[in-house]
């Protein structure tokens, strides 16, 4: 198994178990921006009362789903972690929360086609809104890269609406002001 196959194996397992998901985190910012190294794949899943262990029969033996829920202290969300034999790469399954933007990001997710399968991703606008909200060290670079690569294609009214809700508009303006003009 190649390291780049792991996320696709988990996506196939979620599809087989009929668990709705969206691939977020660095995979989504890599898709919309300038790719960078990542130690994990983050997926938001909607279990709707089902146990996460419903996923287990669809995972190969080399992927280990920890049924113990962990609490993520930056984003205040709950997750289960999948570890993989012989690699430091991990997959994290975050529970869809009641947060208004978390719900909206999940509702607006888009389907792309890659590696012969359909993959659910957030919109580029929702990647920006989320990264501005958590604003960890890596998020600033990701924000510059997504805004730079997407250029004029972004729906700024939508981004501004959520930034105003989250109080992140000034940070957005600061980051945008540092990005040089780039031809479309």
């Amino acid at each position: 198994m190649q390291i780049e196959d792991i996320t696709m194996i988990v996506i196939d397992a979620l599809n087989a178990a009929q668990i709705p998901y969206v691939l977020v985190g660095s995979f989504s910012s890599n898709y919309y921006g300038i790719p960078r190294s990542t130690q994990d794949a983050d997926l938001v899943i909607e279990l709707a009362g089902r146990p996460v262990t419903d996923l287990k029969p669809h995972l190969p033996d080399s992927l280990h789903l920890d049924p113990q829920l962990e609490f993520e202290t930056i984003t205040f969300t709950k997750r289960n972690v999948i570890t993989i034999d012989d690699t430091v790469f991990k997959v994290e399954l975050f529970r869809l929360s009641d947060d208004a933007h978390d719900q909206e990001r999940f509702r607006r997710r888009v389907q792309i086609r890659a590696f012969g399968r359909d993959i659910q991703l957030p919109t580029a606008e929702d990647v920006i809104v989320t990264k501005l909200r958590w604003l960890r060290r890596k998020d600033v670079d990701d924000l510059e890269s997504v805004i730079g690569v997407q250029g004029n294609q972004l729906d700024w009214d939508y981004i501004h609406y959520w930034c105003d809700q989250h109080g992140t508009r000034q940070m957005l303006d600061d980051i945008r002001s540092r990005i040089p003009p780039i031809e479309s």
């Binding site: 780049e4 430091v88 890659a114």
Partner: peptide, 27 residues
């Protein structure tokens, strides 16, 4: 930065999604 942006715009979906884990492996 402009050069990196233009290079990213030329990448396929597969290349972008595979890049993160591949770069980790190399690192």
């Amino acid at each position: 930065f402009r050069e990196r942006v233009q290079r990213a715009r030329r990448m396929t979906a597969e290349q972008k999604l595979a890049a993160g884990p591949q770069l980790l492996e190399s690192a």
